[in-house]
Design a protein around this nucleic acid. Structure first.
Length: 567
RNA sequence: UGCCGGAUCGUCUAAUGGUAGGACAGCGGCCUUUGGAGCCGUAUGUAGAGGUUCAAAUCCUCUUCCGGCAGCCA
C-alpha cells in the first residue's frame, strides 16, 4: 500500500495556534463581555528607548487589535517626571510607527488624565477608602511588614475624611516638601498580597514634567494610574507582563471602588534573549558609560539599534510571531532573531560584490588595459530583480581569506598552483605568490582560462570553489563595520558574582577601513539592504555614512558551514 | 516556612481526554558558478509518584523544582 497518497481533497487547513490571550478574547467575544469590542494599548513609560522585548508587546497588542478588527492605542504612562524625558517620547513614537503598529489618531498621555485622576482620588477619600499619611518612606516600609508577617496600620490611617480632603488639597497646592505626605488607599495592612497593604496613590515630586510643566507637584503611582488610564480609554484587554500579576487585585480594587468601566488585565511572560540584556536601566548604563556609542548603537537590542543594524520591521514582526506568547519564563535563542532577518533578506536583498580584506591578484595573461563586462545576477532567488554588468580587468582584488598557502583538507578556494572560479567570470590558476622581505603576501600572479567564462556553457573544467572579487580600477572604497554579540555570556546579568559588564565582548565591533566594493554601491541608499556575496547582509549606516565616505554595517553574516580545522 | 504564577525535544511553542507536532539550533546526506539558498533525513521531550479512565501532557492527590512580590519605580 502506498501510504503517501496524494489526497488533496482531505487536506485539513493548517490550524493557526491560538495563544492563551486570544483564547480569553475569543471567550469574551462569545459572552459579549465588552459588546464584541477589542481594544488594546501599548503603554510605555518614556524613560528609555524601546527594545526588542517591547517589540514583542507592541506586536502582540497591535496584532490582536488588527486580528479582531479592534483598536490599538499608544499611550505614554508618564506619571514620574523625575525619570522621563521628551527625547524618549519622540524615539518611542518613531519606533512604534516604524514597526508598523498603527495607532492612527490615538496617541495618548497618562498625564492628560491628571485632573480626572485627582477627582477620582477625592471620591475615594470621601468614601473613606483613601487617606493622607504623614509617615516617612522609611516608616511606611517598616509598617508594611514582611512577606511572612502582616503589616501595622499607620497612626494616620483613621484620619477624618474632612482632614484628608484638606491635607490632600494642600499636597496638591505645594504646601509640603517631597516625601512629607502621601495619599494611600485604605485596604488591608494584613493582606498576604503586599500590594494591598495600603498602597500609595500619590507622592509629592517637585519636578517639572515634560508635558504638564509645573502644574502638578503630586503625581499618581503606577498602581493608581494605570487602571484609570485603561478605563478612560475604554481598553478591553490590558495586556502586561508577569510581574504585574500580583498587582491585578489592586487594579481591580481601584476600578471597583470607583465603579467605573473595568478592563481586564492579562499577564504574559516577557521576552528574554540569550547573549543580551533587556533591562532599561542596564541599557542606559551601557550608553552613559560609553560601552556603546548610543541607544541606537547597532549592537544594542533596542529597536533603533536593530533598525540601524539593518533589521526590517517585517523581520521583527515575524520574529515576534514565531516566539509565541505564554506565561512560562523563556529565553529565546538570538539565532532565531538572526534567522528572521536572514530569511527575509535572502529573498529581497540585492547581491553585490564586496571585498572586505583585499588581496591583489594580477591576471598575467589578461590584456594590459583590457576590460570586459560580465553578467551578474542581482538575486538568484528572484530573477525579476534583473542583472547588472560588472567590469572585469587584469588587476582584481579578492578576499585574503580566499587564498591559503598551506590549505587544510576540504579548503575549496585558491591555493598555490590551484584553481578557483571567480564568480560570474573565469577560472583562474594561482601561478606565483609575491611576498615582501618579511614573508607577507603582497599579491598573487594568476592566469585565467578564456574558455571558462561564466554563462558560456559548461566546460570540461570543474572547480570546487567559487570566490568573489572586485575589479581594482573599477571599485570604490568604503568602511565596513562588523558586529558580533555584545556579550560573551549567554546570560550576562544572571551571574551572582559578576556584573554584566564583565561579559562585554571586546570584539563586538570590528571596523574595516579599506574595503573595496563594486562601483554600483556608490549610489547605495540608507533603506536598501544588500547581500555582499558570500559575506552577509549589509546596509548603509544611517548616521555615519556620507556620499564621500561610505560606511556599511553588517546586519548578519551568511551561515557558513566551513570551519578551519583547529591548529 | 506568606501570597501569586509556572514546568512539553538543546531553545521556543502546539496538542484543550483520543497517533506528542512545528520552528530555530545541531547532526547526516543531496544539490549548488555564493561552502549562501533550497531539498531530504535525523529526537529515550510531557519534572516525579500515585490515582480516575477503554484511553491522561491534558482531570484528581501529593511531591519536587523554577520565577515574581516587602519603591513615595513601572
Amino acid at each position: 500500500m502506498n501510504e503517501n497518497l496524494n489526497d488533496t481533497q482531505n487536506i485539513t487547513p493548517e490550524k493557526t495556534p491560538v495563544n492563551f490571550i486570544k483564547e480569553i478574547i475569543n471567550n469574551d467575544l462569545l459572552t459579549a463581555k465588552y459588546g464584541g469590542r477589542v481594544h488594546t494599548r501599548f503603554p510605555p513609560e518614556p524613560n528609555g528607548y524601546l527594545h526588542i522585548g517591547h517589540a514583542k508587546s507592541i506586536c502582540l497588542n497591535y496584532g490582536i487589535a488588527k486580528d479582531y478588527n479592534g483598536k490599538f492605542n499608544l499611550r505614554f504612562d508618564d506619571t514620574n517626571p523625575s525619570k522621563e524625558d521628551q527625547e524618549y517620547v519622540d524615539s518611542i513614537i518613531e519606533d512604534v510607527k516604524w514597526l508598523g503598529a498603527d495607532f492612527e489618531d490615538r496617541l495618548f498621555f497618562g498625564s492628560d488624565y491628571f485632573d480626572q485622576m485627582f477627582n477620582w482620588a477625592i471620591l475615594l477619600i470621601e468614601k473613606g477608602k483613601a487617606y493622607v499619611d504623614d509617615l516617612s518612606a522609611e516608616e511606611i516600609r517598616q509598617h508594611r511588614g514582611t512577606l511572612t508577617e502582616p503589616g501595622k496600620n499607620s497612626p494616620y490611617r483613621d484620619r477624618p475624611v474632612a482632614d484628608n480632603l484638606d491635607l490632600f488639597h494642600r499636597m496638591k497646592n505645594g504646601e509640603f516638601k517631597n516625601g512629607e505626605k502621601v495619599l494611600r488607599a485604605k485596604i488591608d495592612m494584613a493582606s498576604p498580597n503586599i500590594n494591598l497593604r495600603d498602597p500609595i496613590m500619590y507622592r509629592i515630586i517637585h519636578d517639572s514634567h515634560h508635558r504638564t510643566g509645573d502644574n502638578w507637584c503630586i503625581y499618581p503611582t503606577y498602581d493608581w494610574a494605570h487602571g484609570l488610564e485603561d478605563s478612560i480609554e475604554n481598553i478591553t484587554h490590558s495586556i502586561c507582563t508577569l510581574e504585574f500579576e500580583n498587582h491585578r487585585p489592586l487594579y481591580d480594587w481601584f476600578l471597583d471602588e470607583l465603579g467605573i468601566y473595568h478592563p481586564q488585565q492579562i499577564e504574559f511572560a516577557r521576552l528574554n534573549l540569550n547573549y543580551t540584556i533587556m533591562s532599561k536601566r542596564k541599557l542606559l548604563q551601557l550608553v552613559e558609560e560609553k560601552h556603546v556609542s548610543a541607544w541606537d548603537d547597532p549592537r544594542m537590542p533596542t529597536i533603533s539599534g536593530l533598525r540601524r543594524r539593518g533589521y526590517t520591521p517585517s523581520s521583527i514582526r515575524n520574529f515576534a510571531e514565531r516566539i509565541g506568547v505564554a506565561k512560562r519564563d523563556n529565553v529565546i535563542d538570538v539565532a532565531l532573531l538572526e534567522h528572521s532577518i536572514r530569511e527575509e533578506l535572502n529573498k529581497t536583498a540585492k547581491r553585490v560584490m564586496a571585498v572586505l580584506n583585499p588581496l591583489k591578484v594580477i591576471i598575467t595573461n589578461y590584456p594590459e588595459n583590457g576590460v570586459e563586462e560580465v553578467h551578474a545576477v542581482n538575486n538568484p532567488e528572484d530573477l525579476s530583480m534583473g542583472a547588472r554588468p560588472l567590469p572585469f580587468s587584469r588587476e582584481i582584488l579578492i578576499e585574503q581569506d580566499d587564498f591559503m598557502e598551506n590549505p587544510p583538507p576540504k579548503y575549496f578556494r585558491l591555493t598555490p598552483g590551484g584553481e578557483v572560479r571567480l564568480r560570474y567570470a573565469y577560472i583562474i590558476k594561482c601561478e606565483e605568490v609575491i611576498k615582501d622581505q618579511d614573508g607577507n603576501i603582497l599579491e598573487l600572479h594568476c592566469t585565467y582560462d578564456p574558455d571558462t567564462k561564466s554563462g558560456t556553457g559548461t566546460k570540461n573544467k570543474k572547480v570546487k570553489g567559487t570566490i568573489h572579487w572586485v575589479s581594482l580600477p573599477y571599485s570604490i572604497r568604503a568602511e565596513v563595520r562588523l558586529y558580533d554579540r555584545l556579550f560573551t555570556n549567554e546570560a550576562p546579568d544572571s551571574d551572582k558574582g559578576k556584573s554584566f559588564l564583565d561579559f562585554l565582548n571586546p570584539d563586538s565591533l570590528r571596523i574595516l577601513r579599506d574595503c573595496r566594493l563594486e562601483s554600483s554601491l556608490a549610489s547605495a541608499q540608507v533603506n536598501e539592504r544588500y547581500q555582499f556575496e558570500r559575506l552577509g547582509y549589509f546596509c548603509l549606516d544611517n548616521k555615519d555614512s556620507s556620499p564621500n565616505k561610505l560606511v556599511f554595517n553588517r546586519t548578519v553574516s551568511l551561515k557558513d558551514t566551513f570551519k578551519l580545522p583547529p591548529k
